[in-house]
């Protein structure tokens, strides 16, 4: 039982990931992505000639800001802090999510209790969690971690639960005929069987966490990309805002690419997707 929104998100993510590999692997041989990016850049540059810097800054100013950030210590301090928050949040959510997902996968009773709660949590906007976090907790890191947990845990649980449910009963019966212990059944069937879902859940949540962490950082964090974006907004420093956003996007593309490499390695047993519907 996947929600439509989640389904769409997963589809979008796998498409993204596909686009990323194709982009990296065949950038030289494929001109289409280069052309579409160039068109956007040219349009932006033309706009920047007519509009003030604080609305549409020219590339030159963006590049200057970017270089400024990259060459200063703030890049390391703020970016690393934000990335650390993302991974701590994801790690915690994953641990909790995998436990909840596995429990639901094994117990129909628990599934009935937990599933509606997860769907309810999924419906809560990220901004509401931000407000709850401010009211409930004082330490900034705790607030950020809580917001990420609330945002990412349901995804992890639902996708992993789905993955476990999707393991064919045929394999289960085949192994049971040999009388494995419960532990063997788990390590030889459930664990490898849910691996594709685990990887999907990471792909979905890396994107989600990167977006949510910025909002979470707006609530009292003095270090981090979210804080730097807020500062840029207060100073109407559009080049800085764009430059920081670029850094985030680069981070996201890079991690998604690494995840894809990992997936290719771990799921090398899967038939290649060639001959899909497109």
């Amino acid at each position: 039982m996947r929600t439509k929104a989640l389904e769409a998100e997963i589809a979008a993510v796998s498409e993204d990931a596909g686009a990323v590999t194709r982009g990296w692997g065949a950038l030289a041989s494929r001109k289409e992505p280069v052309i579409s990016v160039l068109i956007i850049l040219v349009m932006w540059q033309i706009l920047s000639l007519f509009l003030p810097r604080y609305l549409v800054p020219s590339f030159a100013t963006i590049i200057v800001s970017f270089v400024e950030i990259v060459s200063s210590s703030t890049l390391m301090v703020d970016t690393l802090r934000t990335i650390m928050r993302i991974f701590i949040g994801l790690g915690l959510s994953f641990l909790a999510g995998i436990i909840v997902g596995v429990l639901m996968g094994f117990s129909n009773t628990l599934e009935k209790y937990i599933l509606p709660v997860l769907h309810f949590i999924m419906g809560v906007p990220a901004l509401s969690w931000v407000i709850f976090a401010i009211i409930w907790f004082k330490p900034v890191e705790l607030r950020v971690a809580f917001i990420l947990l609330a945002g990412c845990l349901p995804n992890y649980s639902l996708i992993i639960h789905d993955g476990i449910k999707g393991i064919s009963r045929d394999y289960y019966d085949m192994l049971r005929a040999m009388r494995p212990t419960r532990r063997q059944l788990f390590s030889k069937l459930v664990l490898p069987g849910m691996l594709p879902a685990v990887l999907t859940s990471w792909k979905v949540n890396i994107g989600l966490a990167t977006r949510v962490v910025i909002v979470a950082e707006l609530v009292g964090a003095t270090v981090g990309i979210g804080n730097k974006l807020l500062l840029a907004q207060e100073l109407f420093d559009m080049p800085k805002a764009v430059a920081w956003t670029l850094i985030l996007v680069i981070f996201l593309l890079l991690t998604q690419y690494l995840l894809l490499l990992l997936e290719r390695h771990l799921l090398r047993w899967r038939p290649s997707k060639e001959g899909g519907i497109q």
């Binding site: 045929d170 005929a177 009388r179 069937l189 490898p192 691996l195 799921l267 047993w269």
Partner: peptide, 21 residues
């Protein structure tokens, strides 16, 4: 149930090979 550990040699209709192995 557990008495039959490795007592059965079963060949299924579809091979039921674990795809990741």
């Amino acid at each position: 149930f557990d008495f039959f550990r490795a007592k059965f040699g079963v060949i299924f209709q579809t091979d039921r090979l674990l795809p990741w192995r």
